[in-house]
Amino acid sequence: MACLVYGAVYIPFDNVVKILGGKTVERSAWQSIVIQSRLPQAATAVLAGSALAVSGLLLQTFFRNPLAGPSILGISDGANLGVATVILLAGNTTQLFLGAYWAIIPAAFAGAGGVMALIIYFSAKVRNSVMLLIIGIMIGYLASSAISILNYYATADRVHSYVMWGMGNFSSISLERLPLFAICTIGGLLFSVMLIKPLNALLLGETYAANLGVNVRSLRMKILACTGFLAAVTTAFCGPVSFIGLAVPHVARLLLGSSNHRQLLPVTLLAGACVALLCNLLMVVPGSGTILPLNAVTPWVGAPIIIYVIASRKHIHYFNEA
């Protein structure tokens, strides 16, 4: 709600309520700002925030690692690379940004899926989770390097549009594209809800999960597909948004005091939406009428949480072994 009221342009609160109530207000510009810009932006933040947070939760449970998240494991970078390939090499950018989201989404998904597959391959070989994270970071660097090379050979306007996309944004989705984005994220989130029960079994490790009747191999594939899809969709639409996927599951666990996914997953989903809305608010520089890039804000929200969780591992047990 605050996101609808508060923005680069000042619009009085009662007017926002009027606009949302379907009434006309004295300035039509306000109306179009609220309906055409702020409303889809808030909706995008809610959807993208919950998608990223749930994707992070699945990865953290899957790798039993508090530092797993789409951005750390290189999955976002993979999606980035996919998008960069499309924006920088193929077609012309105006066309792309006017309607060809269909090209970006599969590209992002292919990139994210490729990195996920690599990580899974290495996770079978490298049992140590810190080492696995380092591998993820390395893969991320490789993807970034590939993006740099693409940038180097691309034309200036394509580079510009890629850089703008890369700063992360909840506002790039217009009211017309919102339904597509909503269908994709809600579909992915519903799929994740179906994984709640086996995710709980996975808390004891794969052998115990298998003994409890879970088909571990198929579960791995489902988690891979679900996280890859959620991360890819948000990355394709909003650019690479860092820290939400990493930090929000921790917020949810700290709030709940439980690792039971029956509660943890819905709470993570809601917390993701709230944190994304908060970041969206913080993007607006007070009094100046300017808006910061999303990725300038998310680390200030996410990083302190991660540092707190790591620093108090003696009291926060959910990733300790026992």
């Binding site: 039993r64 029960k197 115990y208 009747g213 666990r253 690792s259 959910y318 990733f319 026992a322």
Partner: peptide, 27 residues
Amino acid sequence: QKRYAADLRAYDLVALGRHPHTGFFGA
């Protein structure tokens, strides 16, 4: 083997044993 998720409560861990007997969402 060591178990992860050391924050699990005894009750919740024993409840995981009901897995093969409960429904789709594990209620």
